[in-house]
């Protein structure tokens, strides 16, 4: 079998701040196979974006990847030159941000930006590049692409800008797209349109996707696998349906339980008490301990991540919904 599109092994990305070391990403491992969608979920500050930036090699000081491997089609990205990385980025690996203006240049017309992006990695004529731009705009559901090519970003709505940013990410048919909450700021009908297009793309092009979001409902509809992050670590991962139907980690269960539609209308929502800890000076032991209904003496030690069921991993001493527990 061919190497997976992406294999992240024991990734550590830390920020060396004046106040101390922030372990934003700590011992994170996951695999994304060709044509598959991995949903990376967690609450704010859990390390999702830093994970994404680490993969595309854009962690800025005081942050640094301090350990682990990022294998892209078998090649370790930590070991390649900055020049090789630049060539991969925007070509074989693309990133989409929550704010499309991270991708778009406000003072350039859309056609200029798209043609330049095409020609940056491919020796083609301007006309061929323009044709490619037109095609990708069509792919993300932009009507009258010729007209849109002549416009500037500020002439578009937020949803349209995000589509253009997605089209730019698709220009070179990348093998991997890292999408960091690209629909979070959009209205629900516009989000629905974009999710539908992305779904189609993943099914037809073989592109692998990492879809970062805080919204479990989006992951439910879009992803094949899900990895749940808490305080810089993955606490659970596995196939979406299995994880959402029978979570192993108490935090995953808490997240699912607090989704309003999972509760009886008008009844108090199941809630996770307390709040996420600061990543600066995390106390030893399980980071979820102070909020966990299952916490016990043993949780003063740090749980490692392990495969509890086939294809299902969790970082917990007392996982839920295991066959043993369900039998009891």
């Amino acid at each position: 079998m061919a190497a997976p599109t992406l294999e992240v092994r024991n990734l550590r990305t830390h920020f060396f701040t004046r106040a101390g070391i922030v372990k934003a990403v700590d011992d994170v491992s996951f695999t994304v196979e060709r044509g598959k969608v991995l949903g990376l979920v967690g609450e704010s500050g859990s390390g999702k974006s830093v994970t994404g930036f680490s993969i595309i090699g854009l962690v800025d000081p005081p942050g640094r990847v301090t350990g682990g491997q990022i294998l892209f089609q078998g090649r370790d990205l930590a070991k390649i030159s900055e020049e090789e990385m630049r060539d991969l980025r925007g070509n074989r690996i693309a990133m989409i941000f929550q704010d499309p203006m991270m991708t778009l240049n406000p003072v350039l017309r859309i056609d200029t930006q798209m043609i330049e992006t095409v020609q940056a990695h491919k020796k083609v004529s301007r006309e061929e590049a323009r044709q490619r731009a037109r095609d990708t705009l069509g792919m993300v559901g932009i009507p009258s692409p010729d007209e849109r090519l002549m416009a500037y970003p500020h002439q578009f709505s937020g949803g349209m800008r995000q589509r253009v940013a997605i089209a730019i990410a698709l220009l070179h048919e990348p093998d991997l797209i890292v999408a960091d909450e690209p629909t979070t700021a959009l209205d629900v009908t516009i989000q629905g349109q974009i999710l539908a297009e992305v779904q189609k793309l993943a099914q037809t092009t073989g592109t692998s996707l990492i879809w970062i979001t805080h919204d479990l409902s989006v992951v439910a509809g879009l992803a094949d696998d899900v990895a749940v992050m808490y305080a810089g670590r993955i606490v659970e991962k596995g196939p979406v349906s299995e994880v959402l139907d029978a979570p192993l980690h108490p935090y995953t269960a808490g997240l699912i339980g607090s989704v309003p539609s999972r509760n009886k209308r008008g009844e108090p929502l199941r809630q996770i008490p307390g709040m996420t800890p600061s990543l600066l000076n995390l106390p030893p032991g399980c980071a979820f301990r102070s909020r966990c209904p299952r916490a016990a003496e043993a949780c003063m030690a740090e749980p490692g991540i392990s495969e509890i069921l086939p294809g299902r991993e969790t970082r917990c001493f007392f996982p839920m919904n295991t066959p043993a527990e369900q039998a009891a």
């Binding site: 209205d187 629900v188 439910a220 509809g221 094949d224 959402l244």
Partner: peptide, 24 residues
């Protein structure tokens, strides 16, 4: 109806997202 169809729901797995055409 369109609004309700567009809302992602945790119960809907790997399902085609419904689409309302056009922008606001």
């Amino acid at each position: 109806q369109s609004l309700l169809a567009s809302v992602p729901r945790i119960e809907n797995r790997k399902r085609a997202f419904a689409v309302v055409k056009g922008e606001i």
